[in-house]
Amino acid sequence: MRYLLVEDNAELADGIVKRLAMDGHAIDHAATLAAAEDCLAVAHYDLILLDVMLPDGDGRDFLARSRAHLETPVIMLTARAQVSDRVGALDQGADDYITKPFDFLELEARCRAVLRRRGGLARNQIALGPAQFDPAAGTLEHDGQTIDLRNREIRLLEIFARHPGQILSKAQVMDHLFSYDAEVTENAIEVYVGRLRRRIDGMGFRIETVRGLGYRMDTDAP
């Protein structure tokens, strides 16, 4: 996915760019609305993350102005927990909003929900053996059939899909799977891996347990 981040706080922007890059996304950063317009003029983005308060204006006003010719979905970053603000952001054509500070898993979940709602966008499909996995939409296609995966299943599958053939430790998997404010045990991971295995059964790829080390995805399996 290619993101445009419009955020004036340099440190926060730097963090968000790094953090999203870790998940394999490409991010351009604009510190002002003017810079954002320059970016939009030359590149195509899958999603825009737009701060509400920017030095050269209000993100909502920008949205109201450019919504007519802007097809890219927009998620507002707001610092206010106030409800009226949320309503205002959505009224002005934002697809969703998220309040700072946010959990990146939640950001991802909201992006996915927005992209699913919008539909019809060119997406990055990942081939898993004979099956096609679309992490943005959360779908798995096999044999002409499409199944919708649940949130955790998508995340789990995505971790393996992005590291094909590599052994991933339980700790690594856990970082991708659970919010950091939740107390989870490694047992929980076994539960989820077990469930995902049942879902992908017979699709021509599988997740193996590497005793004492972790898991590995095998896409060449019969």
Partner: peptide, 22 residues
């Protein structure tokens, strides 16, 4: 004013949280 205050408090919190995640 409230929006500005929230912005000032929560933006640094967001920075801390992001850096901690990284």
């Amino acid at each position: 004013f409230i929006a500005e205050a929230a912005h000032r408090v929560r933006t640094p919190l967001a920075t801390v949280r992001t850096q901690a995640e990284i």
